[in-house]
Nucleic acid binder design. Structure first.
Length: 479
RNA sequence: GCACCGUUCGUCUAGAGGUUAGGACACCGCCCUUUCAAGGCGGUAACACGGGUUCGAGUCCCGUACGGUGUACCA
């Protein structure tokens, strides 16, 4: 079978991290099987459109490495790939169902439907369209229906759900699913504005675009029986379904803001590497069956299988994501990281930002931070000579520490960075000159030279900064 | 309420009838060490519950509980 999958977002906002994962699974599945990845824009709700949303989503996807073979931005043989441009198609297909008796006209107003639902809830029954009591083709009769249609009365087209049978389908993640027909609502297919609902457009397009596998989030599972019915009504073979589990908040509800960032652009802005994010998110709900934790996109493609997708939702663990990002940070090429960090250092007005120098600094500091950009702040004493401002009591303590001053005077005169050994020796001698043990001297010395309590190995740090700048800082302290 | 789906350490998960229930994050301890990390080593910690089936059940079946999703002229 030719594998053709699609990611079908609505352009109503930024790309959600959960959507990224759904898109990613589609992408991995397509690539694994040498299939085709399609982007289809589901913009049938005219009231929720957001300007620029689709471009943002495509950009976020591209940033993460998820690309498409067909779509509005790349073309393809099954277009157009924007549903609002396929308007006539849905009308025609609705007509087919109307003609073969699997759909019908209904004329109820929003108020009437509200009243119906209120009544049903009061009576303790499930809110569903009451075909025999509302204003539709069946209750009104053929002549009246035709008259209303001719008059241009507002109407919708509904799916005629068979009440007495079961609808069943096999889901690649969940197995066999069976739902009784009487539990399924007579879904609106065509809205009164002439636009299709998701259900109609989705089924028509999936068929016309020859989609082989529908891989989407679990929230769609309850409406899948309607879709199966629709395929039957058209006389089409349904695609294979795979409903992937949701990404969850710590309280196990569907992942949302309130608990943290959820938009891909947020993660990007915070400094996560796209490959780290993809690696992490791929492993939220899927695993390759081995104990490895790190997978490049190529490796994910190689190992991905729907059969190994989890059934239960996964709580999004920001801490583990941070860990993963830090792991990627320590494994990437310092020179390339330098290219990324450089503009940031420039923005901060730093003076010592020669590429090799920055790369060396990254190598020195990256094991101590989560994000590349952290290094700009964490290592400011390397990139510039303006040291962080110390709290006044700390500064005073340093200044008035006579033992430290003596030790610093000594090391000012004898600083030797020619080797780790020589530095150790001169530091020990300096400590002794101030009446300090070496261990008591190193930390204050670091404070004097970097204005920070923590950092990389002091000898390596000072070597990078260079003797000259170190001496200048000692002078500044001693002045 | 009803329908559907789900339930292994706090979290992500391995496990396809016989395992000392494994790994990763987090947490704790030790080592390393001039700090903080990183790294190494070790530790705490789980099969929701109840019935079956079976010589044997985390694994199969049923029920219960709990949770999630859906229940729109939104997707």
């Amino acid at each position: 079978m030719d594998v053709r999958v699609r990611f079908a977002p609505s352009p109503t906002g930024f790309l959600h991290i959960g959507s990224l994962r759904t898109a990613l699974y589609n992408f991995l599945f397509a690539r694994h099987h040498g299939g085709v990845m399609i982007l289809r824009v589901e913009d049938t709700d005219r009231t929720r459109l957001v300007e620029g949303a689709m471009d943002e989503q495509i950009a976020s996807l591209a940033w993460a490495g998820v690309t498409f073979d067909e779509g509005p931005h790349v073309g393809g043989a099954y277009g157009p790939y924007v549903q609002s441009e396929r308007f006539d198609l849905y009308r025609e297909h609705a007509q087919v169902l109307l003609a073969n008796g699997t759909a019908y006209y209904a004329f109820d107003t929003a108020e009437e439907l509200d009243a119906m639902r209120t009544r049903q809830q009061a009576a303790g029954i499930a809110p569903r369209y009451d075909r025999s009591a509302m204003r539709n083709q069946f209750t009104l009769g053929e002549a009246e229906t035709q008259r209303l249609l001719d008059d241009g009365a507002p109407h919708v087209v509904r799916l005629l759900v068979p009440l007495t049978r079961e609808v069943r389908f096999t889901d690649m993640v969940r197995g066999d699913v069976v739902v009784a027909g009487r539990e399924i609502d007579d879904q609106i297919l065509l809205k009164s504005d002439g636009f299709p609902t998701y259900h109609l457009a989705n089924v028509v397009d999936d068929h016309l675009m020859r989609i082989s596998h529908v891989i989407r989030a679990e929230e769609w599972l309850p409406s899948t029986p309607k879709h199966v019915l629709l395929y039957e009504a058209f006389g089409w073979a349904p695609p294979i379904f795979a409903h992937v589990p949701l990404l969850l908040n710590p309280d196990r509800s569907k992942m949302s803001k309130r608990h943290g960032d959820v938009m891909v652009r947020d993660f990007r802005a915070r400094g996560y590497f796209p490959d780290a994010l993809v690696n992490f998110v791929a492993l939220c709900g899927w695993n390759p069956g081995s104990t490895g934790e790190f997978f490049s996109m190529e490796e994910l493609i190689q190992h991905f299988a729907l059969e190994r997708v989890q059934k239960a939702g996964a709580i999004f663990d920001y801490k583990k994501l941070d860990w993963m990002n830090a792991q990627y940070l320590t494994s990437k090429d310092p020179a390339q990281l330098a290219d990324v960090l450089l503009p940031l250092l420039q923005e901060r007005g730093h003076a010592y930002i020669e590429r090799d120098y920055v790369a060396a600094a990254i190598k020195l500091l990256r094991e101590r931070v989560t994000f590349l950009a952290d290094i700009a702040e964490f290592g400011d004493y390397i990139f510039g000579d303006t040291l962080a401002t110390l709290a006044s009591d700390v500064a005073q303590g340093l200044r008035e520490n006579s033992a430290l001053r003596k030790a610093c005077e000594h090391i000012r005169a004898h600083l030797d960075l020619s080797s780790a050994e020589s530095f150790k020796t001169c530091a020990s001698e300096a400590a002794a000159a101030g009446g300090l043990k070496p261990g008591q001297f190193m930390k204050p010395l670091r404070m004097v030279l970097t204005h920070r309590e923590v950092g990389a190995d002091l000898y390596e740090t000072l070597t990078l900064i260079g003797t000259e700048r170190c001496l200048a800082r000692l002078d500044a302290y001693l002045a």
